[in-house]
Design a protein around this nucleic acid. Structure first.
Lengths: 259, 259
DNA sequence: TACAAAATCGAACAATTGTTTGAATCGTTC
DNA sequence: GAACGATTCAAACAATTGTTCGATTTTGTA
């Protein structure tokens, strides 16, 4: 299966890891073939997704022979599984860690939803600031991964992170007891789809950079607070909106009358 | 270009059109090859999208020779352009027509946003009820089209419907003057991405059917009102949410403290 | 330095893609 | 019924895909 080699590599710190574990560590000259393939794969995946990224494009970008991919990683799917999980495992781990911490210390009574949203997105913002982990590209990568249409990527994410996702769904349900399960499911669905496709698009990320620039003072924490200050109320507003208010119903019926 | 033959066909009423215009009208026996190809294309596009739908899959589904596509439509792209625009032209026309009617008669003062949202989605709901136009499949089709990742589809939609989209952006901006252009752009972006990918997914549409079932009385108009009664307040809530409330900011900073 | 394992390389593989070709068939018109 | 254009068909085309093979080179170790 594709998961056989998932645990023995950490990218992009691959070369260091090999040295740590006293692995063969041959081929120390310049960047090792494996590392360069992984970097090229990530770069091209961000732009084109899984299906549209060919092994020839990857090996050309990496300056490496075509056969190297199958030699080092077994198959295209195993290569991409490695690239995806190395990014997303750390992200989801950090998310759940934050959720644990907040559940232990108790949520803010009136702003639980905002806090849950912050919990989901803060880890991504922080990783996006870590240059070693790809900097800005991390958000693009995240968007691509969750928006990718290939069955392989969708199944990988759904199966591997099902437990973590369920934790958050459960937490939101507890924070919004007045919302029918039906409506909550729809709204969370909306919210996550929106985030993914937005992160993947270029202009939306520039917009987020603009939000970060409105921070008072320019510490990293202030920037995160600024972005979440725009994002969380917006999303929380959608989750909390009341359904079927009579004045709204009347307004909608006016539109129906014209159609 | 792909648009050469866009104007001379109307699907699915193709056979009738040919007769109307006194076209050759040969090959009247059974369903004409063209019509069957168009139907098969639409069916497979809904499930697999543009890239993953091969001409061989289409011609097999249609029970037609492989070469028929290039003979009747010129190329794969021209075929899909025809399928896409025949659906979306009518939709966008109806949307703008509704918008015109409401702008002329004046919006509800306090619920303009809800009305604008209803204006955007009501035409889709109505077309989805028209069995001749594909019934339920129309919503799947719509979701696929706007979520498709292929450059061809994205460019087609962006270029062809740029003017209509701008009309709605402008209307929302007028209805939400207190919202910075930056925030409005982000929120509309979110909203539309969310709608598309939600329509494309199977479970979300079952959910909408569930909402429709909550209607009092079961006329078509009541069902539309029920769906919009859940959808519009939810989306309006997200568009209207206030940014940077101090209590929310405090709650978010609590989360930052744990990270 | 010599040996063996690891890694790289060019080349070819089989499968799939959209498209084109030229002959065979069908339907209409004279 | 002959002739002509429109349509259908099987077959092949060229390009691209992921993968595999065998020979060659590189590398660490004895």
């Amino acid at each position: 299966m594709a998961f056989d080699m998932l645990s023995n590599l950490s990218f992009p710190a691959l070369k260091i890891r090999e040295r740590e574990f006293g692995k063969p560590a041959r081929n120390e000259g310049r960047a090792a073939t494996k590392t360069r393939i992984l970097a090229a794969t990530e770069k091209l995946f961000i732009v084109h997704g899984f299906d549209a990224t060919s092994l020839r494009a990857i090996t050309t970008e990496a300056g490496v022979n075509l056969a190297a991919v199958n030699y080092h990683f077994g198959s295209k799917e195993e290569l991409f599984a490695l690239v995806l999980t190395n990014r997303l495992d750390t992200l989801n781990l950090e998310r759940v860690r934050l959720l644990d911490a907040l559940e232990e210390n108790g949520f803010d009574a009136v702003n639980t939803v905002e806090q849950l949203i912050a919990t989901m997105f803060l880890p991504a913002l922080r990783l996006a600031r870590n240059v070693e982990r790809g900097g800005d590209d991390f958000l693009k990568f995240l968007g691509r991964a969750y928006a990718d249409s290939s069955p392989f990527v969708r199944n990988l994410l759904a199966e591997r992170y099902a437990a973590q996702n369920a934790r958050f769904v459960h937490a939101f349900a507890k924070a919004l007891p007045e919302l029918a399960a039906q409506d909550l499911s729809m709204r969370l669905h909306f919210m996550l789809d929106a985030i993914s496709s937005t992160l993947a698009s270029e202009d939306a990320r520039k917009l987020m950079a603009g939000l970060a620039a409105t921070a008072t003072g320019d510490s990293a924490a202030n920037e995160d607070a600024a972005v979440l200050g725009h994002l969380a109320p917006f999303l929380a507003g959608s989750l909390r909106a009341r359904v079927n208010q009579t004045s709204q119903q009347e307004a909608i019926r006016t539109v129906l009358a014209f159609a």
